[in-house]
Design a protein around this nucleic acid. Structure first.
Lengths: 209, 209
DNA sequence: TACTAAGTGTATTTTTGTGTATGCAAAACT
DNA sequence: AGTTTTGCATACACAAAAATACACTTAGTA
């Protein structure tokens, strides 16, 4: 149980894995990791993964569906004064499920408490598409979302529409609510909703990828 | 500690090692160092490395996996596919000019993206004086600076004061901000500034010359 | 069924650090 | 002078680690 030191190669692998996680929202396969580390045999990547699991930095997925390893956010803190908390990175947010259900959590990522303040539930989402590129959110970026069911006029909110997660700007009118895209792509149109609908959170911060 | 003198050869080796580190983001192997120093036997390079480790300038890799010599903490990286990125070396940073104005750029130096990661503008500065020698920055050293206008307590920042560029440690108080020298030379005194003043960047890495 | 993609086992090759012996020139002795 | 010592650089070799090639098993899918 003495968590031995991690070598350079393992560090590098960890970074690649994390980068892959953020890009695609899931663990790389052994062969994907092989390519991203410029290895020529899958065994090489498997060995690194094995060592990392031996050191309890990665852990194997439970039997059910996939048999991938899952990243555990044990991050080395850069500044001693900087404190971090672990924020879950949610994959595809399933419709009916409670949003923090374990099946949704792809990874846990350390975020500074200066960004994610203590009282409040937060999660990270990987965005898709260009519907908010005028607000600095581009395809693949991560957004840090504070989980709450209410929001105010002008907030960037996460909403669940037709089983899909969308990030839009909230505009509250007298009789209805509109979700506005902020995009240079004119194909995106506002979405008009009834007065009460499920807001899944408010975007607090954008992490460009 | 009997930190004895470093010879010319060792200095040259150190320079090559640092250059390699900047270019590729990792320590050269013994045989790589051999080639870069025009040696014809790996043993020659190994001896130099050995001497440098004896003098606590390099340090060996901790047990377990590899037995490479490792240079001081090299920093984070994200994308493995990108190798180097050109960082401008700024001469005298003129006051009014935009900091990246072409007139300022003396040269462009390739730096590994593992040191200067992608999101973010960087520049290199040649330092003068001894006002930060307790932090390992000596006269003539290069500092790699990330360009940003905000900084946190304790950061080593680049600031423009009275038309001069200074590198100091930032201390944020309630009503003011102090730039602290970290020098054995008592002639350097703190500089007290108003709450908001122009920060030109934060020192990310020091390249001794 | 056949096919594909996944993780993993085994054997082999390449890389890497380092030990030992040798040569060689300059310096330091007798 | 001649001799020895010292400091490097070289060549070669070796063990361990890392990476590779190849093949096999398993699970999911059409």
């Amino acid at each position: 149980m003495p968590n031995s030191q991690i070598s350079n190669k393992e560090m590098e692998a960890l970074r690649v894995i994390r980068s892959h996680l953020m890009k695609y929202g899931k663990m790389p396969s052994v062969r994907e990791l092989m390519k991203e580390l410029n290895y020529k045999s899958p065994r090489s990547a498997a060995v690194v993964i094995q060592k990392l699991t031996d050191k309890n930095i990665l852990e194997k997925k439970k039997g059910g569906g996939i048999r991938l390893a899952q990243y555990e956010a044990s991050e080395v803190s850069d500044n001693p004064q900087e404190q971090t908390i672990k924020i879950p990175l949610l994959g595809a947010v399933a419709c009916g499920l409670p949003i923090f259900a374990e099946e949704n959590i792809e990874a846990e990522i350390a975020v500074s408490t200066k960004v994610a303040h203590h009282p409040g539930k937060y999660y990270l989402l990987k965005t898709q598409g260009d519907s908010m590129n005028l607000q600095g959110i581009n395809d693949g970026d991560l957004v840090l979302v504070k989980y709450q069911n209410h929001a105010e006029n002008g907030d960037m909110v996460v909403a669940l529409i037709d089983n899909e997660v969308t990030v839009k700007e909230l505009k509250i009118n007298k009789d209805n609510v509109v979700l506005l895209p902020r995009s240079s792509n004119k194909l995106h149109t506002p979405i008009i909703l009834s007065r009460d609908f499920a807001i899944q959170g408010v975007v607090v911060s954008v992490i460009p990828m």
